[in-house]
Write a protein that binds this DNA or RNA. Structure first.
Lengths: 245, 245
DNA sequence: CCCTATGGTGAGCACTGCTCTTGCAATCCT
DNA sequence: AGGATTGCAAGAGCAGTGCTCACCATAGGG
């Protein structure tokens, strides 16, 4: 049932087309009513099938949701990649800002998909985690920025690294390994904090936690300010486009 | 149906007892299967009623959930308040650390309740926001710490304030007003970022987003490190208990 | 002290996810 | 080319859900 890839043969091709159509309808429903309101039967109706037929393509409602989660990760990843790719390679801060703004923009445009991946796990804790591939597309972008940062180690305005307890160094070991290169543990800690801060902010905004906290019509302004400070905390040099002084 | 407070008369008292009993069972179910699996019928069965009788006490399943959300806010608030109250008033950093650790501790102990309030809104975006009272108990604690900070303005190790665009100042106006006193906008911005960072981190940990990022057995260590850095970013002076040098 | 508001009952509607049997048709193999 | 095999769709059905409603008993308060 985990037919994702090749599609050889006429039959297999038709099967994949059907799968795609179901997913398309499901995507639409998700965008309209959210994950909790996504009904396999309703999707089946809209696609013109009887509900039991859908089970030929997805093992369960949760399987359908998992496919949508993968979808969402890819959409976010693509959006972030595209935005970051538009920026001059040398402009590390600009690349970071592009990444951040793209993430928020995508989340605002498709809040239900965002909730699907960064909200509370809907089914019951089981789902994702074999979705590692697409899940890391966005994080990869940040990792590459950090790689470029350490390569051209202009320690200009970089905050001085803190002394780290060895347990903390071990704690962030997966990150340092993932980023590659020889990124110092202190930067890895900063990176994780920036990442959680970024998505924490977006989540707060989307999930209504910023009510009576940040004026609603100025959320974008505040976000930009926050992103700028996060860039500072990473030690990203001032943007090359408009370097002051 | 919004019978929360007084309870005068025998009947009204019995009513509130029943309400409490239903809530208690619901709370148990929530802790076991999570919000999406909370069934009004199942709760009714466990409490020894027929399902329709529950509707005498709660307008709908969502109303029950809303009551549980209120519950959760209060539990988190109480936990945070208690932890922070144990710390010497002058030890601003210690108070902040106590608050942060209590929040994470409560979340880990009752993840479903945490997801209820800080995860994606389950019903369909409608619920809370009249629950402002209990919702702010935890934030009030931070606000008071910041008030004490600005009162005893020892600008010792405090990061130098940034120049703020006027839109940003307006954006955080609700925060500055909520905190009270005359807290500078720059500190308000920092406070919001610290808050989102804190809960972003907890959310990431609880929702599985830290998989392959922070070693699972060292999450606590990493959290402490992060909290320490967040305290720095607020300009909280080193703890009075173990001041170095 | 009686009467009425209150709260419990059970049937029922429309919906959900999921399973299983049945039949048809396209595909593959000899 | 023909027959066996496989894939897909339909439909009925089960267990469960949220929620409504007509129906009563009873106990509390006027």
């Amino acid at each position: 049932m985990d037919d994702t890839r090749p599609a050889r043969g006429l039959r297999a091709l038709a099967r994949q087309r059907m799968r795609e159509e179901i997913l398309a309808i499901a995507r639409r429903h998700l965008g309209e009513q959210g994950a909790s309101g996504l009904s396999l039967r309703a999707v089946a109706r809209d696609v013109g099938m009887v509900s039991s037929a859908v089970y030929r393509y997805f093992d369960s409602r949760d399987a359908l949701l998992t496919a949508l989660i993968l979808d969402a990760y890819n959409a976010l990843g693509a959006s972030v990649e595209a935005a970051e790719a538009e920026v001059d390679r040398g402009d590390l801060r600009g690349r970071f800002e592009g990444l951040a703004r793209a993430a928020r923009g995508w989340a605002l445009a498709d809040p239900h998909s965002y909730a699907l991946v960064y909200g509370s796990p809907v089914p019951g804790y089981v789902a994702p985690h074999d979705t590692v591939g697409p899940a890391t597309r966005a994080t990869r972008v940040l990792a590459d920025i950090l790689l470029d940062l350490t390569a051209t180690h202009r320690a200009s305005g970089a905050p001085r690294p803190r002394r780290l307890r060895p347990e903390v160094v071990r704690a962030v070991a997966p990150v340092t390994e993932y980023i590659g290169g020889r990124v110092p543990p202190d930067l890895a800690v900063r990176a994780v904090m920036v990442w959680t801060s970024l998505f924490g902010l977006v989540s707060f905004e989307l999930f209504g936690q910023l009510h009576n906290v940040i004026a609603e019509d100025l959320r974008g302004e505040f976000f930009d300010e926050a992103v700028s400070r996060l860039a500072d905390s990473l030690g990203l040099p001032p943007s090359t486009r408009d370097r002051r002084r």
